[in-house]
Design a protein around this nucleic acid. Structure first.
Lengths: 220, 220
DNA sequence: GCAAAAGTGTTCTTTGTACACCCATGG
DNA sequence: CCATGGGTGTACAAAGAACACTTTTGC
């Protein structure tokens, strides 16, 4: 039985959630994919698939689910989040074109891959509620307004700026850089960076992170 | 690359969380395992593995994680929950012995399988907080006292009976059967059955289920 | 001076948690 | 009659959600 690794790479640009796809000459659009052969196992294969397709290095991935494809192949699906601005893409060997596509306007994909994208999106949205996923989608330094905008795109709804500030700062997921940026008109915003630590680290250690109920159910 | 399917089957008996293991003549103890060949793909292979090892049919499984084993094999791990009382076990073809082991007193297992058990347990405990996992570990009809005891074993701590009753009944995960059972001394308890539906179905549809933060992180 | 975005606290509602007593049966 | 487990409601604490105004800049 053949084993494949496929990676759904997401970014948020200009308020739109996008997916990274590549295409061989004249072929169908596809997620970054490869066989798990070579050093390092599945996780390494996922990283390598993205690097080989789009020239993007040092991304973090997370295993999503393993699909079977008509009993002949298993596809181990991964999720990756990056800031498109910091990672310019360029087609790798054998790749005619790589592009970001809005997640709700994807071209026809290879067999089985729509399910990977759909499940990746579901997991991404679920994680939004309890993990600081946005820091993976933002530059090194970012304003809380930018961070909030990312969350709003992922969640598909507006958030209250005051509550957002309070919760993010209290959770300790970001730290002030001391710098400030004037983005045009309006008062300049303080710039923050990721504080590295994950959520659910409040003082009482009793706090529990949350997930949308469907978050880790298997995909349909 | 070789593909294997391995299933960590859990039950709760007499207040102890147990794992189902089998052993070929003279061999090492092992989880139910098989190749994914044959009809029906990975999920069917998981069900078949348990049936072939222990003669247990019609269990529900859930995919956990896919491990790579030294770059030579990938193991797709599954979680299954059953009521040991309703499913007597008997060794299948080529199986010398099948047994339930207390989860904290396992024998030496095949390579890589301790990680499967550990991750299955982590996921099981995480799901406990937001899904009615206990109904899969109980007979058709059960008392709320029995159900609470299962949760206490999974969570490793005592629960307040009043709050437990209120929350379970409000969540609508069980329904009264109308029957009553005298279990010895003490007032007879009402018998309930699973109401089928899943959690997080409260009236306002605003309710969000919860998960321990580490619940769907990859295993170490 | 006005449009635009950043920044700051408080109130209310909901959820979770702690807690004490009576009820029905077996021995 | 008493030991054992079943069944019921209320008070307090914590978390989440809603909400208005002042500050700083570009134009």
């Amino acid at each position: 039985m053949r084993v494949r690794v496929e990676v759904a790479v997401f970014t948020v640009r200009r308020g739109v959630l996008e997916v990274l796809l590549g295409r061989r000459g004249g072929g169908t659009w596809s997620l970054a994919a490869t066989g798990p052969d070579g050093a390092g196992g599945l996780d390494a294969a996922a990283t390598r698939a993205v690097e080989d397709m789009a020239g993007i290095r040092s991304i973090t991935t997370e295993q999503l689910y393993t699909f079977d494809r008509a009993g002949e192949e298993v596809a181990v699906a991964y999720l990756a989040l990056i800031d498109a601005g910091r990672h310019p893409i360029s087609p790798g060997q054998d790749v005619a074109e790589v592009r970001w596509f809005a997640h709700d306007d994807l071209p026809s994909l290879e067999e089985g891959q729509p399910a990977v994208v759909a499940y990746g999106l579901q997991r991404l949205r679920a994680k939004t509620s309890y993990a600081p996923v946005a820091v993976n989608l933002l530059p090194d330094l970012f304003t809380l307004g930018e961070m909030q905008a990312v969350y709003e795109v992922l969640l598909g709804r507006g958030l209250d700026a005051r509550n957002f500030r309070r919760d993010v700062l209290r959770a300790g997921v970001v730290e002030e850089s001391g710098e400030v940026r004037a983005e045009g008109r309006g008062r300049p915003a303080r710039l923050y960076r990721s504080a590295g630590g994950h959520f659910a680290v409040d003082a009482r250690e009793r706090r529990v992170a949350r997930a949308i109920s469907s978050g880790d159910d298997p995909p349909a």
